[in-house]
Computed example of a mutant assay.
Amino acid sequence: MNNIELLKSSMINIVENKYSFKNNGLFQTDIPNLDFYFSSEPTEFNAIIYEPSLCIILQGSKAVGFGEELYSYDYSKYLLSSTHVPAKVKILEASEEVPYASLRIKFELEDIYDVIKNIDTNKLAMNVKSEKGLFFDDLTEKLYEPVSRLIKLIDKTKEEMDYLAPLIIKEILFILINDKSGYFLNKFAMEGTVSNKIVHAITEIKENFNEKLNVKELARLIDMSESSLYQNFKTITSMSPIQFQKKIRLEEAKLMLLNQNVEASEVAFAVGYESPSQFSREYSRMFGMSPKAHAIYLREEVS
């Protein structure tokens, strides 16, 4: 057994003892930037939005659909998301005996910039083009080691977590930036790059998702032409700005239906739709069932 396998085995034991893989779903740890996801069976494709994060599979495998492309990865690779990126995910390998288990380490672009400003970025391969907001690469022992130390903190005191977790996450970002993913992270974090401008556009849409989107005004805000905004936005997210806003609205609607006892029409207006019937049609198209039926299904899933 090599060092990576030893580290992975140790990580699995810590996580399983703390949370038990038999409990399916998302589990937030006491470290705000770290959470886990478990499943004892394969799933169909589900629509999600990746946040800026590093995602690692401990057991099992997953398929990720981005635009027209489909990727698969397991414990030998990692996924890096630079911004809020819509995707479809499907757990491929999972069982009662060997459940699917993965971790996510979230970060802010400011965290990346804080690391980048202290290294020589001339060695990072850069080009002026934007590219998709997801990046896959092989996991190395050098990256696994600090990730393992971060996981071990879940058994430590709050004082140790609060002090050491940010330092370890900064170390993880340092390793990523000095590896193949460095150019990828640099383009999204550095002010003035095309990719960074699109990140600002994404943030603007997310923060004002329930307001009517004026693409011309959005392009002016980030200092780009409308055509350039559209082209680069689609490259990074696989969607147009309007499609992305619709995705955000429907995801927010799903959370409201799950967590609040409200009518579908009320949710429709709250997320920015002028017509409840249009909301219901688009919701059903995205999630495969009506808002009311989906709300019942979601509550049964978490009960």
Rank of each mutant, 00 (worst) to 15 (best):
Y183W: 11
I116D: 09
S53M: 14
Y100G: 08
F244Y: 15
T140M: 06
P52R: 07
I222R: 06
D155T: 09
I91E: 02
S53C: 12
L80S: 11
I105W: 07
S76V: 08
L143H: 07
N118R: 08
S195D: 10
I12A: 05
S228L: 10
C55V: 13
F21M: 14
I105E: 06
Y19R: 04
D74G: 15
G288D: 01
Y78I: 15
S303V: 11
L139I: 15
M126N: 14
P166H: 03
V85P: 05
P86A: 04
E191W: 07
R249P: 00
I4Y: 08
I14A: 08
A47T: 12
G133A: 12
D120R: 08
E211T: 06
N178D: 05
E266F: 00
K170E: 13
N118Y: 10
T83F: 11
S277Y: 00
G67V: 04
H200L: 15
L255I: 11
E131D: 10
I49C: 09
E108T: 14
D30N: 14
G60D: 07
L70K: 12
D74R: 07
T83P: 13
P166K: 00
E69N: 11
L250E: 01
L124K: 05
K117W: 03
S53F: 06
A125D: 13
E251T: 15
A264P: 00
N33L: 08
T121R: 13
G288R: 03
T235K: 14
N122M: 11
T29N: 06
I154T: 08
E300I: 10
F287L: 01
E159L: 10
N17W: 04
F45E: 12
I116A: 12
N210E: 09
K170Y: 05
I222K: 06
